[in-house]
Amino acid sequence: MTEQTLIRIRVSEADFDLQEEQQALLELTAEAGAVVSFTGYVREFSSGAPLETMLLEHYPGMTESALEMIAQEASQRWSLKAVNIIHRIGRLGPKARIVLVQVVSRHRGDAFSACEFVMDYLKTRAPFWKKEFPLEGQPYWVEAKETDEAALARWF
């Protein structure tokens, strides 16, 4: 698509506010008719066991460029006004927000599709790793799921 898409990427320990983020995007874009937001949270149970905390490790530098590339790819496939991706790192407790993807477009179809595409891409290509610390027992690294690869493959 030929239109310019506003792309915002943030990787940080800090929490985010959905409403603030959405307002900021709308103020920076013209003729926005639709905003689709996805928020990912830390589940309080992992494999049935209560979770104490989760640690999110990442690859500084590559993370930001991978997210930028994913947003660019989405903006070439759909007609988008803006893409905002925030991913938290460090220690996160149960029910904490992990990731936010917001997509602004003129019509809802583009925003719905692009938001799901960005998440599918992010889950399999952005260099983040989760380590879970259960209330009891040893911490462990979360294993990648084949269903995530399958979710991405749908788009190609």
């Binding site: 999110l56 992990i98 990731v99 998440m119 889950k123 290509r125 260099p127 790793w129 294993e143 990648a144």
Partner: peptide, 9 residues
């Protein structure tokens, strides 16, 4: 860089 398959999001 060498790393396991990613698990973010």
């Amino acid at each position: 860089a060498i790393f396991p398959p990613v698990t973010g999001g």
